[in-house]
């Protein structure tokens, strides 16, 4: 009798441990999913295609910032490196979207002091930028402080 009861308790204990283990694994998977989603990481390989642009000043643009056309999110900033004292920004676009050769990429600020993003104004050229190509027309971030100081201290 006593032996059987111990065996039953052991089984129950294993059941409980199994449930806790499964719960933990599910929790870790959820956490992984969340961090991939929130961090906008791409682990399932590259989607879309890349185009790079060279800016004289990006004024606080970050990797992961959005790329927009007419306010619609069409891609994101994939990497930013300093190249010959200018910012070389790689943009990742959706596969189905082609950007004209004379499109202009400008760095804008959401609101007056909001986050930075890249706005693309589409051009009229029939030629599209090839994957890995360069968007030639770029507009740097406008330094508000500098502009204001020009107005404030401009007059003597």
């Amino acid at each position: 009798m006593a032996e059987r009861r111990i065996k039953g308790e052991k089984m129950k204990k294993i059941d409980l441990e199994l449930a806790v283990g499964l719960f933990l694994i599910a929790g870790i998977l959820c956490l992984g999913y969340l961090s991939v989603k929130l961090g906008k990481l791409e682990i399932m390989g590259e989607r879309g295609y890349d185009i790079y642009g060279v800016f004289s000043n990006i004024g606080g643009l970050k990797v992961g910032s959005s790329v927009e056309i007419a306010g619609v999110n069409v891609g994101r900033v994939k990497s930013i490196v300093l190249d010959d004292f200018q910012a070389r920004v790689v943009l990742n676009f959706r596969k189905d979207l082609s950007i004209q050769e004379d499109a202009i990429a400008s760095i804008k600020t959401r609101g007056l002091i909001g986050e930075k993003y890249i706005e693309i104004t589409p051009g009229g050229s029939e030629k599209a930028i090839k994957p890995g190509g360069r968007i030639r027309e770029t507009q740097p971030a406008i330094d508000m402080e500098e502009l204001i100081s020009k107005f404030v201290f401009g007059k003597i």
Partner: peptide
Amino acid sequence: YDVSIEGVSLVNNYRTQFN
């Protein structure tokens, strides 16, 4: 074909307005 003053492009300025 384009002139940028203080980083603001002439073509882009008119492009957004015309659009």
